[in-house]
Design a protein around this nucleic acid. Structure first.
Lengths: 209, 209
DNA sequence: CACACTTTGTGAAATAATTCACAAGGTGTC
DNA sequence: GACACCTTGTGAATTATTTCACAAAGTGTG
């Protein structure tokens, strides 16, 4: 009954979500896998296969009812109830992330930020209170924060990771160009901007696609 | 002679590069695929297979000579000569990216930024001149900029993309949550932070791995 | 130099992901 | 309600990627 769902399918699910959410706001009622695939420059088969891992959401002859599908996907992705997020490391990138509007609409709320700098601790930055690292454990537990955006310098990444995992963080988005070591049960994902650029650079020199 | 190289291999190549660069700075001379794989939490077979797509860099019995391998990979990734980068859209994220130190060491130099805001145009932000959108074409051509980091609002993404592609940009790292439409010959890659969070959210609700 | 260890590079086998192809239903028109 | 046309969901085929397994070399010790 429980088939294993490919990581890639989950990633695409969130792409579908973004697109469908937009469509639902536009008032779109129904959409076929073909139309959705066209919008996202992919194949309809892929869309249907991906969705089929989670159930049967469509109606033959007409397609998918957008408002329902959005809800279903939100449920699958765990977006129905908001998730609390902390930003750890309030340098340039951390500050930008704390202020990023794109998270809120999806139900991700930055409810606390952390830094080592005495100039920042105790102040509100972009509307969110900045705490010192020594309060990590307390604040994360008190506010019941589940996810963290990690933008601290490489030297302290592992140390900070251990601390936030101990405090109960269950998912980490890691911006620090360092491979993270997390215990089982905690999911970490890397966003390595420099690596992305390097890949692009490769594709520029060759010209395959 | 020309086998097709998997995208994933190229992505991992830049992970290897990061690690090997670090090791070379530490003064490491030789390393085996096993040791490198251990550092990156992967399997030695994968490392060897990936490298073998590009040539034979190792020596049986002892492994790879780090300084050489770093150079080889830099060459493959097109990092030997610096690449000029523009940041288009100087909101919070764009500003943070323009200041990001991690790019420079790899030879990616942010040499121009662009925005619509009259308060920003004509001023240096984080040491780099900010130009108006109407100068996109001129500046990109004059400075011979090859890559762009795109952080403009979704409404204008496609319009701006067309403009920078017309100006000669060959690679785009797109932060805008909108699927980009680029002509053949131009490589675009998306960094969608909200999608990353959504995937994490999924893995939090289920607990497979 | 013989022998016991290492380690690479790579075909072949095993896994995983994508694409195909089509039966089983819907829709709409006359 | 018959007919022409869509669209989904899904096994099966195809294609891509990873892992295995081993020959061919290199190292080092006595």
């Amino acid at each position: 009954m429980k088939k294993k769902i490919p990581d890639k399918t989950v990633q695409r699910l969130s792409v579908y979500y973004r697109c469908l959410y937009f469509l639902s706001q536009q008032g779109t009622g129904e959409i076929s896998s073909k139309s959705l695939a066209d919008l996202l420059e992919m194949k309809p088969d892929q869309v249907r296969k991906d969705l089929s891992y989670f159930g049967k959401f469509g109606k033959r002859g007409s397609g998918y009812y957008v408002p329902d599908l959005v809800q279903q996907i939100a449920k699958i992705l765990g977006l129905e109830h908001g998730r609390k997020v902390a930003v750890v490391g309030m340098g340039n990138l951390g500050t930008a992330l704390a202020a990023y509007k794109g998270f809120e609409v999806l139900g991700f709320n930055v409810v606390a930020t952390f830094d080592v700098s005495p100039q920042k601790i105790g102040k509100k930055i972009r509307g969110v209170m900045c705490y010192g690292m020594k309060d990590l454990n307390k604040v994360i537990k008190e506010k019941n924060i589940e996810m963290a955006l990690l933008t601290v310098p490489p030297e302290v990444v592992q140390e900070v990771t251990s601390a936030i995992v101990a405090a109960g963080i269950k998912a980490i988005l890691n911006f620090s160009s360092v491979t993270l070591n997390v215990p089982k049960g905690v999911k970490a994902s890397d966003v390595d901007l420099a690596s992305e650029l390097k890949s692009l650079s490769y594709f520029m020199t060759t010209s395959n696609r």
